[in-house]
Amino acid sequence: MKKKRRIVLSIARVLLCLFFVLPGNARAGLDGNRTQIAADAQKLGLVAGPVTNENGYSTVTLTLPATSPLSMNGRKTLTVREFFDTGGTIFAVAWEGSLPPDLSVLLGDKITRVPQKNLSPYRHQLLVQTPDLKLRVIGTARFRAGNAWIPTRLPPGFRTDQIRVLAP
């Protein structure tokens, strides 16, 4: 029994060390890695669709299933589109729907660039422009849309008007 406990404690120590040693690109959201998109979807209560490859970048669309308790029997919607480069780094996100997304998930560490007072869910318009983050949010009480991107991470030839949710 002591040997089993010792093994469990050793495994726990290794996992704890890995948590603090893992590289920063393992985080989700902007500037994170595409391998974390499934984690983003789960945190937001969304389902990831297939990856679409474009010229120099790829996208994946996350949608709120009508069967989700968050959708209130299909009356609420949320669609998120995440953009990542050929290296797998997420450089942009876009969203729209009647449910506001959790921006801390979508923006990852970049959420610290947005003043807390601006993150109110009742805010109808928000524009943040810093050298390492561009964020636009518009909406009403019934519908929200927005996008965010890292200007220095945009692939060559990529236009910011492409950072939007595509209608199905």
Rank of each mutant, 00 (worst) to 15 (best):
I111Q: 12
M72S: 12
Y57D: 11
A145G: 14
H124V: 15
K3V: 05
L127H: 02
G45P: 04
F143A: 10
V105L: 12
I163K: 14
V47F: 00
L44G: 03
F19H: 08
P121L: 09
L133A: 02
L44H: 04
L62Y: 02
S58Y: 05
L16W: 11
T79N: 07
V93A: 06
F158K: 03
V47S: 03
V137L: 12
R153M: 03
H124D: 15
T79L: 09
Q116N: 04
V47W: 03
G97I: 00
G87Y: 15
R144S: 08
A41N: 02
G108D: 00
K76W: 01
I163N: 12
R27V: 06
S71Q: 06
I90D: 00
T140V: 10
L70Y: 15
D102P: 14
R6Q: 13
T79V: 12
T67H: 00
T86N: 13
K76A: 02
G146P: 00
T59S: 04
P100R: 01
V51M: 15
R144D: 07
P101W: 02
V21K: 06
T61L: 11
L15I: 13
L46Q: 01
K3P: 02
A38T: 13
L46P: 00
V60A: 14
V47A: 01
T152N: 06
L64E: 14
T112R: 11
A92D: 05
G56M: 01
R144F: 04
L154D: 15
L106N: 07
R6P: 01
P65D: 07
I111A: 11
F158D: 13
P121H: 09
L22D: 04
R142C: 10
L15G: 13
L62E: 02
G74F: 15
T67P: 06
K43F: 00
E54W: 03
T140D: 13
G32A: 09
V114A: 00
Q42A: 12
A145Y: 13
P100S: 04
V51S: 14
